[in-house]
Design a protein around this nucleic acid. Structure first.
Lengths: 155, 155
DNA sequence: TATTGTTATACTCTATAACTATA
DNA sequence: TATAGTTATAGAGTATAACAATA
């Protein structure tokens, strides 16, 4: 309990006791991707979540905030400031819905569509650059396996 | 700018515009893993990061807090409360280092080694259960590709 | 009564700067 | 001067409850 220890020669790979876990490998890989992605999106003053929100709004114009929150897997309440920000930059509008005045139909503006297109091109480029260390087959396998897992994992 | 929209029949797969990105697939997959892992570790009153810290300390007894922070890729300052908690539960001790009295050698207690062993067994079981939807070959490929990416990605 | 968007709030996570004690 | 551990703090991110307007 009061042991005096010798300082060992501690170099790299200190996390080798965790690297047997796929979850750990996924976390480490994702943090690399996220850091590079954040740098990429900084050019457009977008965070990953605002990029995702804008991309979905451009792809599914007219969806409501609740639907978007579900798609992004975030709480409705936490989406509000994200939408505020995109709307404040005139990238989207909250359009009133005729049939149900509680809802807002989220619509991209022309500027929003243009920014989304440019940011998406950069995002594609970011992935191409970052995953260039993998072969085409490895990238495809990684995507396929991750999608299969998401679809079929029993939680 | 003041368009009145019809509410579209919005069902699932609203995120299909993002699923071309490997990073997005990784994030979605990881969030499933993390949720299940958190449930698994709750039995031991451990968070993922405290489990990781304890596992590394058991595997590399005597390492310092700075070394552990590097291994976990977190800030030294944010490690303090994690170590406080583990030490407060008598799972580890901060042993003085003879050669350098600034440093603490992190050593697992007997209780710490026992809890780590039990939690590790549960963690292995959690991965076995959760990734059962993948074939053995797919799990191995996923691990291999993620590791290769982490090792070779040019940031 | 239930739902949509919203506000308020609290809790965790993460990053930075500065302090202390040691080297 | 530099380093290890620590403290304080501020900014994100996340989760919950409750409210107003509307259904």
């Amino acid at each position: 309990m009061d042991a005096i220890a010798e300082a060992p020669d501690q170099t790299a790979e200190t996390d080798r006791h965790l690297s047997a876990f796929i979850g750990y490998a996924m976390k480490r890989a994702l943090s690399i991707v996220q850091a590079d992605f954040a740098r990429t999106l900084a050019d457009y003053d977008l965070r990953a979540v605002s990029f995702s929100a804008l991309s979905i709004i451009v792809g599914e114009p007219g969806l409501t905030q609740t639907q978007l929150a579900d798609a992004l897997q975030i709480e409705r309440s936490n989406l509000v400031t994200i939408i505020d920000e995109l709307a404040g930059r005139n990238l989207i509008i909250r359009a009133p819905v005729a049939q149900d005045r509680r809802r807002h139909a989220l619509m991209p503006t022309t500027a929003g569509k243009q920014l989304a297109a440019a940011a998406q091109a950069s995002a594609i480029d970011h992935e191409r650059r970052l995953f260039a260390c993998l072969t085409e087959g490895e990238r495809a396998e990684l995507q396929r396996i991750l999608r299969k897992f998401r679809k079929e994992a029993v939680v």
